[in-house]
Design a protein around this nucleic acid. Structure first.
Length: 280
DNA sequence: CGGCAAACCTGCGAGC
DNA sequence: TGCTCGCAGGTTTGCC
């Protein structure tokens, strides 16, 4: 489900209900998601106060008052739901239940169970195996053409695959990779190491623009993504190419009968959408 | 190390 | 209506 813009919106939704609150009760309803829950998971969380809800790439970080942190990833289908007062009976995919000292009940729901939750000990968060190898945060001003060029110069594979590598830029997923390459006018099949100079600069700008616009739009709701308030995002209405095979790309005045519209190809087993006219 | 396919899971829509 | 197939927003592993 979620790429950086969706995770960021989940963070914004959880922030007001969790920051400053004590986790009064935690219930685990299965022993593992993508990874097993650590031993004493419930015991180490209950009674802890949440100081801050942060994000790193697609990971949510709940910083706790003993210096430790709860790390959560939503995988493809994970979502947080919350209820003021009466919560419905938990369903088969409500895997973790947390209740705050203000009686707000939070369900972590994840049908496909590609998500995860784990704990990091005090002060080791930056060195945690899940986070240590993540690349730059795209919205923190760490990305520019030089950064990108330096990190893709040894990659002969397609630029699309490099954008999905969380060790280069953290947070880009399959939808936004296509949208970013359209915005930058770069073909997804171009070898990553062919991109430098002004082209890399355009790519860096496109990453920041597309992701920040998507954050502002509340993310993209395709099937099940919702913010914790139950709201859908609206960025899917602004897709230029994603999911638009055969249709015109956004703002396209090309002759559809000549171009055939947006192309869909498979790269590393995943769909890529692009406009062959406007991406080189 | 780089690059790719497969694996992990469930649900949904399309087509027969 | 009901079945099968293909596809889905992510990441890791294992093989060349």
């Amino acid at each position: 489900m979620p790429e950086l813009p969706e995770v960021e919106n989940v963070r914004l939704g959880l922030k007001p209900i969790l920051e400053g609150r004590v986790l009064a009760r935690v219930i685990l309803r299965r022993p593992s998601l993508r990874l097993p829950f650590p031993p004493d998971f419930v015991k180490r969380l209950e009674g802890r106060r949440v100081l801050k809800v942060d994000r790193r790439g697609k990971y949510l970080l709940f910083r706790l008052d003993d210096g430790s942190a709860l790390i959560a990833h939503l995988g493809m289908s994970g979502r947080f739901l919350f209820f003021n007062g009466e919560a419905p009976p938990p369903g088969a995919h409500d895997h973790v239940i947390m209740e705050t000292d203000r009686s707000v009940v939070i369900y972590y729901n994840d049908p496909r169970r590609f998500g995860l939750m784990t704990l990091a000990e005090a002060d080791e968060l930056d060195r945690h195996p899940l986070l240590a190898k993540l690349g730059a945060e795209p919205l923190d001003g760490e990305i520019n053409g030089d950064y990108l060029a330096a990190h893709i110069k040894k990659r002969g594979g397609p630029i699309k695959a490099a954008l999905l590598d969380q060790g280069i830029v953290a947070g880009i997923g399959n939808i936004y990779a296509s949208e970013i390459l359209f915005r930058a006018g770069i073909s997804p099949t171009r070898p990553a190491n062919s991109i430098d100079g002004a082209c890399a600069e355009r790519l860096a700008a496109a990453i920041k623009e597309v992701l920040s616009e998507a954050v502002a739009a509340g993310g993209s709701t395709l099937r099940d993504y919702r913010t914790p308030n139950g709201e859908s995002g609206s960025f899917q209405q602004s897709f230029a190419v994603y999911g638009r095979s055969g249709k015109p790309c956004s703002g396209c005045d090309c002759d559809l009968t000549r171009t055939g519209g947006v192309k869909r190809i498979t790269q590393s087993g995943r769909s890529t959408f692009y406009c062959a006219e406007r991406q080189r």
